[in-house]
Write a protein that binds this DNA or RNA. Sequence first.
DNA 1: TTTTATCCCTTTATTACTTCA
DNA 2: TTTGAAGTAATAAAGGGATAA
Length: 267
Amino acid sequence: MGKDQQDLGLSLSLSFPPNLTPSLVPSSASDPNPEYLRTESIRSFLRGIDVNRPPSTADCEEEAGVSSPNSTISSSVSGKRSERDGNNGDELELERASSHGISDEEDGDASRKKLRLSKDQSAILEECFKEHNTLNPKQKLALAKQLGLRPRQVEVWFQNRRARTKLKQTEVDCEFLKRCCENLTEENRRLQKEVQELRALKLSPQLYMQMNPPTTLTMCPSCERVGVPPNASSTVDPRSHHHSHRHHVPINPWAPSRPFDALHPRS
DNA sequence: TTTTATCCCTTTATTACTTCA
DNA sequence: TTTGAAGTAATAAAGGGATAA
């Protein structure tokens, strides 16, 4: 449990520059009740069809029986689920008590039936998910009881919901990194151009003579950034640099230029 | 060390919706 | 304009491996 929560927490705790994130986050990501769910649920509601209608006696008996058509049967057959359910009295009881409204006719098909949750059920689940994206067993049972679902359904819903959240976050991360890459490419292009210009100057002494003295260019020894000394006339405010420069190192314009990658090696 | 519960990941199946001939 | 097949997106659920208690 701990590992998973950590993973999710890491994924979700990524922060982005405020100017990037909002435009990148898909509207649906923050929408607890997406249009898709709304329209579908509304249609379902209007038709008076609720795939998760409250359990009837027959349904309960059916669920409790051996031949459940739904996931319950397959899950109770599968090792993991049977182990789990067999050791949890409350959960098993709820499993039996809750229903999906599967009739006996439908029961014949052993294939799993996927049932859409109602609008209300989805809304409540979303609300709970907003509060905490994982559930402890008590919360799960309570929620399942409240929604008329099996605890396993609630559990699965939360798992799938976490997966959707992670997927959205991955998309946002990807978009952010793409932009970073674009920005760096652009900066690299700009710097390469600058290097070319400086090399051109180096090759034409006449132009060089018209240049300002090289001492007007200084470099921060710690970060190797080109700066402007305080006495130089410039629009750049030296105080805006990230640390004080008491030791500006004059740049030798004849020194071989280093490409951007050499200045910013990837660790 | 073994057991159990829970997680995530991947895959499958189902449903509802859209597109197009 | 209607209709049915095909395609697509969303998502419920299963199964399996990993991990913590």
